[in-house]
Amino acid sequence: MYSLFQFVILLLLISDLVVLWSGRILMLIRLSALQGMLLAALLLLPINGHLDGEHIFLACAVFALKGIGFPVFLRRVSHKLGIEPMVRVRLGRFFPLLAGLACLAFSMLLENRIAEALGLFPHMLLPVALTTLFTGLIVVVNCAKALTQVIGYLVAENGIFILGIPLMTEGSMWFELSILLDVFAAIFVMAIAINHINSAFSSIDLAHFRNLRD
């Protein structure tokens, strides 16, 4: 069980690195779907052994929303708007990858220093969670299109979700769920906004967004 858990975590880490390197929007969407499914798997592999109904329920919800719902939705949006398939980056692709690796190294150091003593997080969970979070943020910063920013946001939320998994209890289930729904609503609103951006600017490239400044 534990090694399986570690394996899933490792997969998540690899997916992060691929996200940082990937140059195609479709690929990013797929990776986010993969991450969603891996998150559901993590929920089903509880560290302290017992598996209750609420974990399963939440896992299903995560699978449905993050693993299937969002990616499908985002793909539809990108299809509908006829978005060109390549990611447009602002800082290149090497630098973000480097930043992601640096973040990984830093968070592993952090784990060594303070997290292990706590005994709350399984090995590697904290580094991977933080790396995922920062991967998402790097994508948001690096990519020039509205859609890729949404994907980045999604990935960042995944990282936070990972960190929250060990803390999950019966009582907090509803909140996890509402948070999930909240994220869902956010993605939904963002997608609508992308739609509007496309109709207003006939592109979703954020390079057009330079009107409001000082």
């Binding site: 690096n142 990519c143 954020l206 967004f209 330079r210 009107n211 400044r213």
Partner: peptide, 8 residues
């Protein structure tokens, strides 16, 4: 600067 990426 107006660039949302920079802001983040």
């Amino acid at each position: 600067s107006g660039v949302v990426n920079t802001y983040i």
